[in-house]
Design a protein around this nucleic acid. Structure first.
Lengths: 348, 348
DNA sequence: TTGTAAGCGTTATCAC
DNA sequence: GTGATAACGCTTACAA
């Protein structure tokens, strides 16, 4: 009952039970080749010493970590936390620990996290890699034996396993949906055009306009809510246009943009245009009118990524397979889904 | 450039550089007692072999993990993800890895996670412990040498370090705020009354009524949105009352309840009562009217918990301190903050 | 069935 | 300065 200085080891258990170290190990691991008697002795010793096997020592010996790293932008973002949850589930199902870290989408921070996890010899990594990260470094770690699956964004300089959303297609379909509801003047509002995903969605937006034969107007593409013309100013500018010059619909390319736009509209006098947002968010159906969205499927993405990673881990531990087999990377694209809730189906 | 079978070890580096193993260790750890020449040789070998120190081996030897575990209900919940982020920051500042896991607020799952992390000998744990968890087990692990700090909810059977929100006080102040705005008939809507936090808030609600001399009406306390009378039915029942019998204000005791209530109101014909929600949420200010909330401070909670834990870890590694000093647990209560946004300031 | 001993990749304590 | 060598706590041949 007194404060134990430190946890009991197998050696302690062995001594206490008057048996050899290996026997304790056998008992702990359920090896059948132990007599009933000794097994009982060992169990008694284990109980009386509150022994619990030290997994890090075991794993060191076995040369595996039984853990994977998951590096995403921000766990507070529902998209990433849902994706992470899916990975966590897959990992748990394989008795593997998933170690999560938020990079804040900063290249240097992500690199540090990856480095820290590789130093601990995690078996593999699932990474949403920030723009500008040192890709040579990533490649080096992969070559050194830590497989990585990239989610949401792919590295630019080299081929790898990837799981991405259908950003382009989703945006295309969404904007086409707006067009189908009679909109011709459609604005495109983005958080930061520097993000890969946002960029793809902008391209999808442009292509949809193009396909419908609608002229492109660069004034309607507000690319960065933080720099240049602020969203409020932009809204004011738009409102001051003649009625038949104003956009009748807004396409928001990510949830940050969506929130900013909704907040700005809420605080302005402007009549609400039709709105379609890329990425679903809680309460989207509670706002009046319900916000129509192009929903991603982070759960599917997480599952796919995890399965891909564990497949790699499996074939790594197997006898060296055909050397070129190793190089075949898989690139999955997960479909998005348009969810109409009213806001995009308005005809002005 | 060929696929390295496995990562280089210090032994490999030593051989490659033609020096002893210990020397490599010295170089890697920046020990000054190494000649310039050998240092250069070793660095060359390290570079050519792409050597990276195996931290798990190092940590095993040093008997520490340089990592802590964080077990919370659900990382997708903004309250917990924000709390976790604060812990993560504190840990990073101490070169410590924080390993996060979601218990889903299930006792058995939480126990498994705690067990898995203790088996890996994390240095300590920050836990939001689910109701019904085996507290004897927790106590055993703590006694065995893994300090734990409990956040959001405290264990019932034993004393420990805790960091809690001022659930009672926050609810009391919130409901008092409603009363100050002329409300007398105030309903209290909860997700599940089985949650400790929700219970405290319900008690705060009752006490506020009592303090104001307002009679308590058990019909207005809808304790469980999932069981018994569904929220929709309850709303209908309430609406059918005479106008001067209906509650004029709703107090929602957690964010799940808030969302459910807002959604139900949105889909009903009822005129909106005054609304006050415990726990802030994104878009609370975008909904019309802006939702007033009693905001918690998960960042402060995470910081406090982490600091408490690291303090314990510090005094553990120090020479055995006064044995009774060890037993003084700290119980912090973090204040909440009332944020009026309009919904609670309505006078019907 | 059981014990001894050699690792896993480090760090730490010695000698030299 | 430098290099053996013994830990750390475990698994796993290999003997007995």
């Amino acid at each position: 009952m007194s404060t134990t200085r430190s946890r009991a080891t197998m050696k302690d258990v062995a001594a206490h039970a008057g048996v050899g170290l290996a026997t304790v190990s056998r008992v702990v691991n359920g090896d059948p080749n132990v007599s009933e008697h000794t097994r009982a002795m060992v169990h008694a010793a284990i109980a009386s010493l509150d022994f619990q096997r030290n997994d890090s020592a075991r794993l060191l010996r076995q040369g595996i970590a039984a853990s994977i790293g998951v590096i995403l932008d921000d766990m507070a973002d529902p998209f990433f936390s849902t994706l992470n949850r899916a990975v966590e589930n897959e990992a748990t199902a394989r008795s593997t620990l998933s170690i999560t870290a938020s990079s804040n989408n900063e290249a240097s921070h992500a690199r540090e996290l990856i480095s820290a996890l590789c130093a601990r010899r995690v078996d593999g990594l699932i990474v949403a890699c920030p723009r500008g990260i040192d890709e040579d470094y990533l490649q080096k770690e992969i070559a050194a034996g830590t497989p990585m699956v990239f989610v949401d964004r792919a590295p630019l300089k080299f081929d790898a396993d990837t799981v991405l959303s259908d950003n382009f297609g989703g945006a295309f379909d969404g904007v086409t949906h707006l067009i189908a509801h009679g909109h011709q003047r459609i604005a495109c509002l983005s958080d930061s055009s520097k993000l890969y995903t946002v960029n793809q969605r902008i391209l999808g937006y442009r292509r949809a306009l193009e396909s419908a034969g609608i002229p492109y107007n660069s004034d309607w593409e507000h690319a960065d809510l933080t720099a240049g013309v602020s969203l409020e100013e932009w809204l004011k500018k738009i409102s001051s246009l003649a009625a038949d010059e104003q956009p009748t619909a807004f396409f928001c390319t990510n949830s940050r943009a969506s929130v900013a736009v909704l907040r700005a509209l809420r605080n302005s006098e402007a009549t609400w245009p039709a709105i379609l947002c890329f990425d679903d968010f809680e309460l989207a159906d509670v706002i009046e009118p319900g916000i129509s969205v192009v929903a991603q499927d982070p759960t599917a993405m997480g599952e796919l990524a995890a399965n891909l990673l564990f497949e790699r881990l499996g074939q790594r531990s197997a006898k060296q397979p055909q050397p070129d087999q190793q190089q075949k990377f898989r690139n999955s694209v997960v479909k998005t889904k348009l969810i109409p809730r009213g806001s995009a189906e308005i005809v002005l």
